[in-house]
Design a protein around this nucleic acid. Sequence first.
DNA 1: CGGTTACCTGAAACCGGTTACATTGTCGGC
DNA 2: GCCGACAATGTAACCGGTTTCAGGTAACCG
Lengths: 337, 337
Amino acid sequence: MTTIRELARRSGVSVATVSRVFNTPEVVSQHTRQRILDLAAEIGYLPNGSARTLATKKSNMVGLVWDTDHRRPGWRHPFLQEILVALKTALSAHGLNLLMLAGHDAAGPDDGQRYVRAVRQHNLDGAVIIDNGTRDPAVLALVEAQVPCVALDLRVDGPTSTYITSDNAGGAALAVRHLVERGHRRIATITGPLRTWPGAERLVGFRAALAGAGLPLADGHVVEGDFYLDGGHAAMDRLLALDDRPTAVFVAGDEMAVGAMRAAQAAGLRIRDDIAIVGFDDIEVAALIPPGLSTVAQNKPGFGTAAAEALVAMLHGGDDPPKPTVLPTTLVVRGTT
Amino acid sequence: MTTIRELARRSGVSVATVSRVFNTPEVVSQHTRQRILDLAAEIGYLPNGSARTLATKKSNMVGLVWDTDHRRPGWRHPFLQEILVALKTALSAHGLNLLMLAGHDAAGPDDGQRYVRAVRQHNLDGAVIIDNGTRDPAVLALVEAQVPCVALDLRVDGPTSTYITSDNAGGAALAVRHLVERGHRRIATITGPLRTWPGAERLVGFRAALAGAGLPLADGHVVEGDFYLDGGHAAMDRLLALDDRPTAVFVAGDEMAVGAMRAAQAAGLRIRDDIAIVGFDDIEVAALIPPGLSTVAQNKPGFGTAAAEALVAMLHGGDDPPKPTVLPTTLVVRGTT
DNA sequence: CGGTTACCTGAAACCGGTTACATTGTCGGC
DNA sequence: GCCGACAATGTAACCGGTTTCAGGTAACCG
């Protein structure tokens, strides 16, 4: 391991000068700077991150808080991978690294401070939170502890935190208007869990759009789902059992929508002709499953890049936290409508 | 930030003793140990990770090397999320954290040493490599630099590295035997890229099983695919254009298999009756897409836990690197066979 | 009772950087 | 020729831990 003192000795300057070459290059003369840089490259010198962090209290690392739903071990984020790619890319463009924080599975006591502890212990500069809908107190502790945070699909605010979300209400409205254009007048919805932000907002948008179109919302035409396949199936079963069965359903999540499609088929209905379905998310299956699920697409990489940018703004900007970002949604029409 | 000196002062002992309480508790007397622990909990003392790393050169962090295929920006690992969950859980049970390493998109020069640099800079204890099929020199540089490594689906070896993979050949054989049992005698295959380990091995297993069953392999009945949807579609088109069209196809990846199903349907064939299909992976869509894709399932969380265990064994064990892990595969029969 | 021995604790060097402050040298202006 | 300003560099304290080595105490033994 070649150290800064070694490099200083070899290039005949003090360690301070070497340090300055890497931190405030403009204050060291062009000539020495170049000499030191050349020598550094030659002997493969790399500043030691831990030493640097120790001295500056900045680690250039941000934590990634992403737990699975422990009540549902099989829970998967619909597009975690896309978010991760974008997030990682955008962060590393600013010299930031991502440290995955251990969740409720971690060793040690769980007093609801585990993330805060991890942040302090590793001198993390901030955190990105991917919501899993469990309202984990340990997550909220982060924003309370004034750690610079940006949350995805979780509405947090505070002097050091902001969030990124899709235009859930707007997306729901897109879906409704599309169904109305297709001639539907009895439109129902299967919602996400209403305690989650997207779940609640999509219902708000649904209601508003229905009202805007002058359409009534019949009793029992709002069924709360859970974002899972089986939940969607069960919810659709309930809708189909109604006397005034809807002719179209806005399902607030693609996975549930697939479940709903199955329920409809199991009931012997033709999808689209007997019952139209619009989903939300635009996950991979939506395009693959026949006849193609019409759905409201989210800007998946947008979550990652927006989160990175918001975080960087907080870290470098220093002033007020950035406003929440609302990503536009788009309608993708396929075979179910 | 409360430091070790602060805690030492308050509890009336030296910093050395406090340090020992957290590192070698058995050497400090029961009495003082408890007193220090109590006080530590009371004032919320946490050892500073950077200082610790600086002193010990062990960070308790391992790097995650996972790049997307830059020739295919949309590339997604078929079950990254499951791997990540298991990996993170298993690692954190051993007190290890996961640092996502920036990829080819990172700032700075790319001399094929970017991962090695990152490892050195952050004093990482090891790395987990998720192969993306690009044979990135920067990845191989890691194992050459003697960084403790465990790779997924990438066959690396060296004094400090090992790998985890599924029983690809065995899985392919499962698929073939199943098709033979169903009465098929003209069986073709759509392979993955043959430069990848799983791609190559599945073909090996396919050939062996065919031979084992005494069946011939007709000309043109091996088509190299790319693991992608469109590639599967195109490959199937070629198979269907043959004079001696196969009655069954082993498709070495579920995404390709879906593409192949579409091609078959587009050609007006009934899947299963006119042409049977077995995939590989058992991704989510396999169960969702009608009539259900028969496929060879991989033990997805197994990759994560096995990787964590292998890495821990290398870090703590100290001796020879563990033998490669080969995860068993299982056949899942659905509607396509 | 002197000498080991085992056990517990403390002093201080060290890990590899950053940075406040001091120092040196140059140059322009009066 | 002297002084102040400024640019470039050096000195040394500091960040918060770990660990070697040595010292002190008590028990144990012959």
